[in-house]
Computed example of a mutant assay.
Amino acid sequence: MDPKSELKTIQARMAVIVDGYKSGGNLSDEQATELQELNDRATELKAAILRAEKSAENMRAVAGEPIDHEGDRSIPGAKGYLDFSPARVKSLAKSIANPGIKALIAGGSSGTAVPLDPKPVPLGLTGPNAGFLSLFKTVQRTTPSYKFLQQTVRTNNAAVVAPGALKPTSVYSAVEVTNSLKVIAHLSEMVDRFLLEDNDELESFLATELGNGVIRKAEAEAISTILGTSGILTYATSASYTPAKGFDGIFSGMAKLATVGGYTADLVVINSSDYETLRLAKNGENDYYGGGPFTGGPNPGLWGVTTFVTSGIAAGTALVLDTDTVQISTDTKGIRTDVDAATGFDKNQVRFRTEGRFATDVKQPTGILKVTLTA
C-alpha cells in the first residue's frame, strides 16, 4: 500500500476510535495503545509524503518544469509564458555558474530551468530588444514531435434572424498540423581550465553569452516561421518610401488586421534600422514625430502598441500581429549546458555546449500581417 493510501486508512481507524470515546464510551488499554501506535505511524507517513513531494518538486525545478503549488505537480503540456527578460537571462546564467562551472566540469552537464509564468513580461519593463518569446503563450512538450490545430477558415455570418427564419451558418475550419522541436545550440572556444577556476567572472560571462545566444536565435527562428506561414495577411506602402509612409503603412496594416481578420494588433516587430528612421523622423517644423531627445524610453511603441525592435527581421519588412494567434513550444528540460573536458585533456582545456529546443506554432494565420515598407 502506498503511503497516502495507508495514511487514509489509519486516519479512518483513528476516527472510529475517537468517535466511540466522544459518544460516552471509555478507551480500553488496548484501544489507547492502538491509538498511540496509529498516531505515531501517521506522523511517520506524513513526513515521508512531505519528503517525497519536496524531492519531486526539486527534480522538476532542475528539469525546467513549472510547479503547481496548489494541486497536481505532474504537469505535462503545461502552458504559460517564458521569461527571457534581461534579469531572467542573468538568473539562468547564475544557475549554471553557481555552484559553478567548476562543478559542471566534474559533473558533465547542467539543465537550467526555464519556468513558465502566468502572464507575459511587458517589453516596457524589460528594456529594448528583450523578451520577444516572452510575449507568446508557451507549451512544454513531452515529445519532440507533436500536433496543433491551425485555423484555415474564419467566416463569421452571424446575423439578426426573424422568428422561424433560417439561421445563417458561420464557417470556422481548422487542420491538424504536425510540428517538431528544433535544437538550437552552439559551442564555446576551448578555455583554459585554470583560467576558469581562478576567475568567477569568466564563468558568469560564458554562461550569459552562451544562453543569450540560444535565446536570440530562437527569437529569430520564431520571426522567420511567422513570416513564412501561408495565409498571413499582407500590406505594402506605395513606392518612394518616406517615414510618413512608414507610420501610415503600419497603422493601415493594423486596421486591415482588424477589418479583414477580425483581430486586434498588440505587437509590432520592426527592423532596428527602420525603427531608427521612424524614431528620428521630423516634421516641417523640424520637430521629432516621436518626441525629442529628452523624451520617451528607448523603444516607445508605434501607435501605442508594444514594438519589438530587432535585427532578426529584414529591413523594409514589419510584422503586425495579435499575439494570441501564435504559441511557442519547448521541451521540459530548458536550456542545457554540457562540458567537454576530454578533447582538450592534453592542453588542460575545456569546451562548453549550450542548447535548447524550440518551435513556433502559428495557430491563426489571419491574425498576422506582413507590412512591406516599399523603397
Rank of each mutant, 00 (worst) to 15 (best):
R216L: 09
R216H: 02
R216Y: 02
R216T: 03
A218N: 05
A218K: 06
A218L: 08
E219P: 04
E219S: 11
E219F: 05
E221R: 05
E221H: 03
E221W: 00
A222P: 00
A222Q: 02
A222I: 02
A222F: 03
A222V: 05
I223L: 11
I223R: 03
I223H: 03
S224L: 04
S224A: 10
S224I: 01
S224E: 07
T225G: 00
T225E: 11
T225A: 13
T225P: 00
T225R: 10
L227S: 01
G228E: 02
G228D: 02
G228T: 01
T229C: 05
T229H: 06
T229Q: 12
T229V: 09
S230C: 01
S230F: 06
G231T: 07
G231Q: 04
I232E: 07
L233S: 11
T234K: 12
T234I: 01
T234R: 12
Y235S: 10
A236W: 02
T237A: 15
T237N: 08
S238D: 14
S238T: 15
A239W: 03
S240W: 10
S240L: 12
S240D: 14
Y241L: 11
Y241E: 03
Y241C: 00
Y241A: 06
T242M: 10
T242F: 13
P243V: 10
P243L: 08
A244E: 13
K245T: 12
K245E: 15
K245N: 15
K245Y: 13
F247K: 08
F247N: 11
D248P: 01
D248R: 15
G249K: 03
I250M: 06
F251N: 14
S252H: 09
S252I: 01
G253M: 09
M254S: 15
K256V: 11
A258L: 14
A258E: 15
A258D: 12
T259Q: 15
T259N: 13
V260M: 04
V260T: 15
G261D: 10
G261P: 10
G261V: 13
G262V: 08
G262P: 08
G262K: 05
Y263G: 01
Y263H: 15
Y263T: 00
T264N: 14
T264R: 13
A265L: 13
A265M: 11
A265G: 08
A265F: 14
A265Q: 12
D266K: 06
L267Q: 04
L267C: 05
L267S: 04
V268R: 04
V268N: 11
V269E: 03
V269F: 03
N271K: 11
S272G: 04
S272Q: 11
S272M: 04
S273D: 12
S273R: 11
D274P: 05
D274N: 12
D274E: 08
